[in-house]
Amino acid sequence: MSSPTTGRSAAAGRAALGFGVLAGIVGLWHLGVRGQWVLVFDIKMAFLPEPAQVARLLWDFAFGGVFDDAFSGTLWQHLWASTGRVLAGFGLAAALAIPLGVLMGRYRLVHAAFDPAVNLFRPIPATAWVPLILLIIGFGSQATIFLITLSAFFPILLNTVAAVREVPPRLVEAAQMLGTSRANVLLKVVVPASTPGIVSGLRIGLGLAWVILVLGESNGIEWGLGSMITLAREQVRTDRVVVGMIVIGLAGFLSDRILLHGLRGIFRRRPLVRAT
């Protein structure tokens, strides 16, 4: 047993270690660009902007006042537009995948009905959907949301099915012998018992939503981090591409934290989210 104080200082030590590695990566990046290193895969570091340059551009992207061009201070508008699409696509995926997953995990007949379709559609990567979506939806916000829904749907579904199947039969028996109705066995026992697994699926789905965002926003969209990166690539602005990558990375990271801590806030001390 460690006392709270040593526990906290150990956590601080681990955080320092993590930041040390990050600082090391940035340091190597800086040296690599300066020294024009050529790495495996023919990575030409000379083509990269320096970290300091990226930091300045990131600041300008967020708050303006440095370069004062069309790019300055537009981060929030891009981020807002992208966040909206991620939330819509992710929310829709969760709203469809969780109920279906609970029913598939609990009822053999529902599983038999949907499992073949799920296994046929699941291996098709989002990139392979793009040409078809271009033809039947056309690029834009709707296509992006559709792609995100599609990508987030399967990890949420599969995690939900697995979690429901792993609910200890004992808990269902306990509920039944207490006089619980079939509907409430599902709602009051199976769903809470599978919540840790469902939350894991949600986190994977949300992460994928940000991954697919860039693909979806790469055409026919004015505002969005993906369209910003696409435009930067067309203009050969490597520095802006890197800035866009960093912002998406941070947004993905932050949304995961918000999801996790939001749920922890709702559940309080109830053991419904896996310890990380």
Partner: peptide
């Protein structure tokens, strides 16, 4: 039950 069967989230 021998293993109690309590609902851990309650």
């Amino acid at each position: 039950f021998q293993d109690y069967g309590l609902f851990p989230w309650l």
